[in-house]
């Protein structure tokens, strides 16, 4: 492991007894797990098992959906992000997000990356910060000559890397990725996967994916979710990816990763 022992042992995120409801429907039930710093954590499971809902708990995006209730704790560096004094806006600057479909703003490439810097009152040199973010997202060489062109002129894969650059520009500690490759072709997918391997040196990445092979390729830890009988999402198993894939403890996990289910 390239990380120091201290970091390896410290968990950046901890989830304790998390329950989520959409109105009367319980979407997640009693989830508890710890996410170690500077690793990639994959969330897998059949459709509708609440993986995305789980991911959106970390940056409080669920707050935007009327009728959502939550109980339990989500600790970022030991502090509960659902405490009454915490502003979701601040949480989202510490925990970035990349979405299922690339969603660049209809602005220039430069303005997309600078967006977060500007609203968060970045005090440094914005040009340098944009360049370094694009470099870290492995996009700089492709766009350096057309920074003022609309982001919508980029290909799907480039747009998604732009969205990653936009997320890392404001230096979050964690990046959430909600099926980031589901709208991309295999080549673009591979580029994003390579990028994830590099980004985990600096960030903790939580990725939701439908693609079991992708989870095996990119993640250090895997959380397997499924639906209980009442259709609410539960966490079946969480552990090191190689252990989950080579020696699953739960029958349901085994069925899923061997393709007998979902």
């Amino acid at each position: 492991m390239q990380n120091s022992n201290y970091l390896y042992n410290s968990n950046i995120l901890e989830v304790k007894n998390l329950n989520v409801w959409y109105r009367a429907f319980q979407a997640l039930k009693e989830i508890s797990l710890s996410i170690p710093r500077h690793h990639v954590i994959a969330c897998i499971g059949p459709s509708g098992c609440g993986k995305s809902t789980f991911l959106r708990c970390f940056n409080r995006m669920n707050d935007l959906i009327p009728g959502t209730r939550i109980s339990g704790q989500v600790l970022l560096d030991g502090q509960d992000i659902y405490n009454s004094g915490v502003d979701p806006t601040e949480i989202r600057t510490h925990i970035g997000m990349v979405f299922q479909k690339p969603n660049p703003f209809p602005k220039s490439i430069f303005d997309n990356v600078a967006f977060g810097l500007r609203i968060n009152g970045f005090k440094g040199n914005i040009k340098e910060a944009v360049e370094s973010s694009l470099r870290r997202a492995a996009l700089w060489d492709e766009v350096k000559d057309r920074l003022n062109k609309s982001a919508l002129t980029l290909s799907g894969g480039q747009q998604q890397r732009l969205c990653i650059a936009r997320a890392i520009a404001i230096q979050p500690a964690v990046i959430l990725m909600d099926e980031p490759c589901s709208a991309l072709d295999p080549v673009a997918t591979l580029k994003i996967e390579d990028l994830i391997a590099i980004l985990k040196e600096e960030y903790t990445i939580v990725i939701v994916t439908h693609n079991i092979q992708q989870a095996a390729r990119v993640s250090d830890y895997t959380a397997f979710f499924t639906m209980a009988d009442d259709r609410s999402g539960i966490l079946v198993e969480f552990g090191k990816t190689n252990e989950i894939f080579s020696n699953p403890k739960d029958k349901r996990t085994e069925d899923y990763i061997t393709g007998r289910f979902g």
């Binding site: 806006t89 601040e90 600057t93 979405f99 479909k101």
Partner: peptide, 19 residues
């Protein structure tokens, strides 16, 4: 998805509307 993209970068509701 565009509005969520801005929220995820820490924009307030008003900033999302304005920008």
């Amino acid at each position: 998805s565009l509005k969520e993209g801005a929220f995820a970068l820490g924009a307030t509701r008003f900033e999302v509307a304005l920008k």
